[in-house]
Simulated assay, not measured.
Amino acid sequence: MRESRALPYLLIAPSVIFLVGLFLIPLAQTAVLAFQENGGWGLGNVRRMADDLNFHDALANTFKVVLLAVPLQLALALGMTMMLRKVQRGRDLLVWVWSIPLGISDLAAGLVWLAILTDQGWLNSVLFQIGLISQPRAWLTYETPAALLAAIVVAEIWRATAIVFVILLAGVQLLPKEYEEAAEVFGATPWQRFTRITVPLLKPSIQTALILRTVLAFEMFAMALALGGRNFPVLVSEAFNAQYFSQDYGVAAAYAVLVMVISVAATLLYLVALRTPAEQRS
């Protein structure tokens, strides 16, 4: 009897040890480092972070990308999921093609888009050949901040929409068809069925997808580095610069804690705004 009671705890023990050893302990050490100053406790690292020349730009750029990319990714993933429900032939092929970006690293995807958007890249070549530009345009410089932001947002949408799509697709496949069929019998339009039945039933999957995607978007680094470099600072890139170039480990830890606090706040916001009724959870 005792062995049977202990079995569940033994099964989850490796995961708990992994979580504590590789996540909770480093997280606690980073938080301690962020608030240590000259052997004591203080906000010196936080103040130096806030006084950093690129801090406000990094904070603004990070939020711009998140607020632009994540809603568009959700809308695209919902559209792709709904479209896939109507496909009869080639469905598995479409899922495979749309999921390809999941197998591409952030840096590799950034370098691909860099090759497209450089002065001599594919985009300028096509625009020049069809006569829309007379000479190559610079899209990724500090003189074109809107174009640079748009490029990073588009690249992020291309790279990470697949994550949201896969989660929503799994959720859609679990939805009971009886509700939509009953609504169709009673004369509900496709849009009414989508907004009043499909989306509410899909809310747990939407919540999960938004939490995961938003947290990962706040941790964006390689894509911004590949396309913008120092012209487009983000929070994680500033933490990297503080750690490896300035050798200021306290400021780097403060940046890490800030990203964690923002991510936790966004998660709590989603949990409250998209909370699921008890009857739906059961």
Rank of each mutant, 00 (worst) to 15 (best):
L140I: 00
L132G: 12
L22M: 07
A6P: 06
M260Y: 14
Y249S: 08
L11D: 03
A222D: 15
Q173W: 06
W98R: 07
I163F: 12
D57A: 07
L53C: 12
T198S: 09
L114R: 14
V261C: 04
G90M: 09
L27V: 15
R2F: 12
Y249M: 08
I17S: 13
A188Q: 04
I100P: 09
D57E: 14
F194G: 12
L72F: 13
A13P: 05
A217K: 02
G110T: 02
F55A: 04
Y255R: 07
T144N: 05
A170F: 08
L94E: 11
P200D: 13
I262C: 14
F18G: 06
T62I: 09
M82E: 14
P136N: 05
A151T: 00
L117Y: 06
A226H: 01
N61I: 03
F245P: 08
I133V: 12
K86M: 15
P277R: 02
L74R: 03
I206K: 14
Q192K: 14
R213T: 05
L201Y: 05
F55I: 04
V272G: 14
I12F: 12
G103R: 09
P176F: 06
F18M: 12
R196T: 15
E181N: 10
T161K: 03
I133R: 03
K64L: 13
T189A: 10
E37G: 11
E184Y: 07
Q29W: 04
T214C: 05
A160R: 11
R89Y: 14
L269V: 07
T141P: 01
I262H: 00
Q247R: 10
F128K: 13
L140T: 00
G21S: 07
W158M: 06
A6Q: 12
A170I: 03
P233Q: 06
